[in-house]
Amino acid sequence: MNLKLHVWRQKGPKDKGRFETYDATDVLEDMSFLEMLDVVNDGLEAEGREPIAFESDCREGICGACGCMINGQPHGHKARTTTCQLHMREFSDGDEIVIEPFRAKAFPVIKDLVVDRSSFDRIIQSGGFITARSGSAPDANAIPVAKVEADRAFDAATCIGCGACVASCPNASAMLFTGAKITHLGLLPQGQPERYLRVDKMVSQMDSEDFGHCGNFGECTLACPKSISLDVIAQMNTDYITAQFKGRDI
C-alpha cells in the first residue's frame, strides 16, 4: 500500500519545527508502524536527507520507549497497542497519516518525534520506592498478600511509563501514571511504611512538573496500551485524602 505521511520535523529543542510530507510507498501490511518509518528513513537517507528521529527499544510492546501521536491518538487508534505493535494492516492504501510527538509542557521535544520524559523519572524518584530490607531474601510466602490486592497491584504495575496518558489527556495530566505507581506500591504490604508519605511527595513532584489535573474524562485509560484502569486515580485521591489526616507536620 502507498501512504502519505505528514510528519513533525524539529531539528532540536530550540527549533520551531514544522510538518513535512513524505510518501511511503510499497508498505507491507505485516510491517509494524515503526518498520514502516524505518523504510521511509532508508529512503530519506538514500537521498541524503535527515531521517525522522523516533524512539524505540524492545519493539514488543513492553518497554514504553516508543510512542507518538498517530492521527490524533497516542500509539494510533487501535486500543491496547503500542506504536511498535501497531501494524500497517490497520491502515488502507491511500491513507494520509499525521504523525506528531506527544505534546505536553512536561514532555519537551528533543528532536522530531522524540520527547524528554524525564519528568516521569523525577516523579518515581520522589516516592516510587519501598524501604529496602537488608539480609537474606524472605520466604516467598512469609508475607501474605490477598489475591484481590495482589491482582490490583499487578494490574497497576503493568504501566510501562510510555506517556500516552499524558499525551491523550485534554489537561496533559500525569495522574494515570502517578496513580498507577501509588496503587501498585500502596496496596502491597512492602509498600506500607512510606504509603502516605509517598502519595504526598509524588503528587507534589507531579504538580511541580507542570502537568494538568484530572477531570475524569477517561481518555487516558482508553489510550493506555496497558489499559491501566481509571481506578488508580481514585485510589490515589483516597490515599491523598488519608495522607492529609495521617500527617503530623504542621
Binding site: 492521527n71 487508534h77 506528531e100 505534546r103 489537561n171 477531570g215 474524562f217
Partner: peptide, 29 residues
Amino acid sequence: KLTIAAKGARPVAYKKRSWFDERYAVRTM
C-alpha cells in the same frame, strides 16, 4: 486555577486530534 494550569500544561496544540470517548457531557464541563 485548574483550567489555567491545564492550559499551560499543553502549550503546543496537536495538529490533528481525535478522541476515544466522544461523550458530550465531559466536553462541556
